[in-house]
Lab assay of single mutants.
Amino acid sequence: EPLWIRPDAPSRCTWQLGRPASESPHHHTAPAKSPKILPDILKKIGDTPMVRINKIGKKFGLKCELLAKCEFFNAGGSVKDRISLRMIEDAERDGTLKPGDTIIEPTSGNTGIGLALAAAVRGYRCIIVMPEKMSSEKVDVLRALGAEIVRTPTNARFDSPESHVGVAWRLKNEIPNSHILDQYRNASNPLAHYDTTADEILQQCDGKLDMLVASVGTGGTITGIARKLKEKCPGCRIIGVDPEGSILAEPEELNQTEQTTYEVEGIGYDFIPTVLDRTVVDKWFKSNDEEAFTFARMLIAQEGLLCGGSAGSTVAVAVKAAQELQEGQRCVVILPDSVRNYMTKFLSDRWMLQKGFLKEEDLTEKKPWWWHLRVQELGLSAPLTVLPTITCGHTIEILREKGFDQAPVVDEAGVILGMVTLGNMLSSLLAGKVQPSDQVGKVIYKQFKQIRLTDTLGRLSHILEMDHFALVVHEQIQYHSTGKSSQRQMVFGVVTAIDLLNFVAAQERDQK
C-alpha cells in the first residue's frame, strides 16, 4: 500500500453525458421521505430548503428570480454533511469501515464536522487534520463531537509532509485500522450531490432553472449537481466560483495573481482535486475576500440567511453572472454553511477592521482624538531585521541585547519573508524542534498583521487588541530589464502597544 495517494490523481470516472444510468458502476440512493420521529440526527441530513432572495437581486438590477439552496440546514450545519454520511455509508457497505475503526480526514473543517457527527452516532474514533487558518468555532464544535484535532501550517503546499493532507496520511500509516475516506478522491463525494442535492433542486424548481452558481473546494458539490442538471435540464448554465489565490478556475489566465492566501474558508485549493470535473462548468468567476464577507453580511442583514463567507462569494458572483438572465428565468445559488463557524471572524466588526474589510468610518461609535491620525505620526525608528541564514542562537542574543521581542526576517534585497519572535524561538528550542545552530528560517511564521503608514491609529489599535505587534510595510514598484514591473513589500518598522501608548501619553502631556 502506498504511503500516500495524491489528492489530485487523474480521475478514473467514466461518467458521460447521455450515458444510461443503468451502466453506472456505483451504488445510487434515492431521496427517502422522513418519518415524523427521526431514529437519529443523521436522518436530518439532506432535504434542505430552497429560499427566495428578495432584496439583493433587485438591489443589483437582476431581472431573474434568485433562489438560495440553504445547505446550513443540514444536521452539522453545512453541505459537507451529505458527503460525510455518504462516504461512511459506502465504506461500511463495501466492508472497508468496521466497528471500532478510526476515521482520519484532512479538511478545512466542515467535512470534519460532518464526519465527527456521523462518527459520534456510529461509534468510530475520528481524527481531523486541518490548517491553522480555520476558525476556532470549527475546532470547538469538533472537540465537542469527540474528534481529535491536529493543526497544520496554512501556507504548507498540499504535497508537503507538513500539509493537512501529508499529516493525515502519516497518521494513517501509524494508526492500525485507520482510514482516510479522502473527500478529494472519493466518488461518494460527487455521488452524494448527484443522487440527492441535484434531485432536490430539480424537484423544488419543478425542473425549471436557467443558471446554477456554486463555490468550489473539493469540487464534489458542483460536479455532482452539474452532471445531473446537464442530464435533466441541459439549458442550465453552470457557474463556478473560485477565490483569488486558488488555481481551480479555467482558463488558467484567471488564476494569475501574486496573491497566495485568502481568508474565506472551505473553497479554493492549490491543486485540482480528483473529484472535480471542470468540463461540466460553463464559466468560472474569481471572487475576493472583501466581496465575500460584504455579501455574507448582506445576506444575514437583508435576507435573514445566517450563512458563512463562501455563501457571500457565491452570491457576489451570482449578481454578476445572472445579469444575462431575463424576467421569468431563474438562478439558484448554493449557500454551503452557517455563520456559526465564523462568529469571531467576519461577523465581528473588530475582525473586519483588522483585516481591512471594514473602515473605521463605517462604525458610528465615538472615537478618541488620536483615532484618525496616521501611523506615520508615530515617528517610528528604523527596524531591526535579520536574514533567514542567521542562526536561532545568534538571533536570540541580538533580540535580548537590543531589547526586542520580535524581528522581521528579510532577504538580501529587503523583501519581507516573515517574522521571528523570542517566545516562538525559545519554545521551539525547548520542544526540540530546532537547535541553536539551525537557521532562523526554520522558525519563520507568517501569521502576523501588516499595516501601512497611511493607515489610521484606530486601525492599529484594533490590531493591537488581539496581537502583540504589527509590521509596518510599504510597497515598492521595481522595474526589470524586460520592461515588466513587480510590486514588493518592504519593512518600514515594527509597532507595539507600548509605542502607541507612549505616543498618546506624550501628545497629551505636551497639550497640557
Rank of each mutant, 00 (worst) to 15 (best):
V472M: 15
K433G: 09
L276E: 01
Q323K: 13
H372L: 14
I396G: 09
A407T: 14
Q511D: 10
L325H: 00
Y269F: 01
L453N: 11
D411Q: 02
Q435F: 15
K286C: 00
E397A: 15
L430M: 08
T344S: 03
P336L: 05
V315G: 08
C307H: 05
P408H: 02
G403A: 07
V339F: 07
F357G: 01
M298Y: 10
P436A: 15
V375Q: 05
H480D: 11
I416H: 10
T261F: 11
I267H: 00
Q302S: 15
V264T: 07
G418R: 04
N341K: 05
G441H: 08
K512L: 14
E263G: 03
R330K: 11
K367F: 14
A311C: 06
Y269A: 01
P383Y: 07
R350G: 15
I334E: 00
G403H: 08
P388D: 03
A431V: 14
G245A: 06
L358V: 11
R459M: 13
V317P: 08
I477V: 12
S348R: 13
F503G: 04
Q354K: 11
A318V: 02
R374P: 10
V495A: 13
H394V: 10
R459D: 11
Q256H: 13
E475S: 03
G308I: 00
V386D: 02
G483P: 12
T344F: 01
E401L: 03
N502T: 15
K433I: 07
D270V: 03
T261V: 07
I272P: 05
G308S: 00
Q256N: 13
S348Y: 04
E327N: 03
V280L: 14
A470T: 15
N424F: 09
K320I: 12
S427P: 08
I444K: 03
I477W: 06
G379E: 10
R452H: 15
G441A: 15
Q507W: 14
P388F: 05
I238S: 02
V494F: 12
V495E: 04
R330Y: 07
K345L: 01
R350P: 04
K449D: 13
D337W: 03
I416C: 15
F295L: 11
H480V: 09
A322C: 08
T482Q: 10
A311K: 06
D362K: 14
G493F: 13
I477S: 06
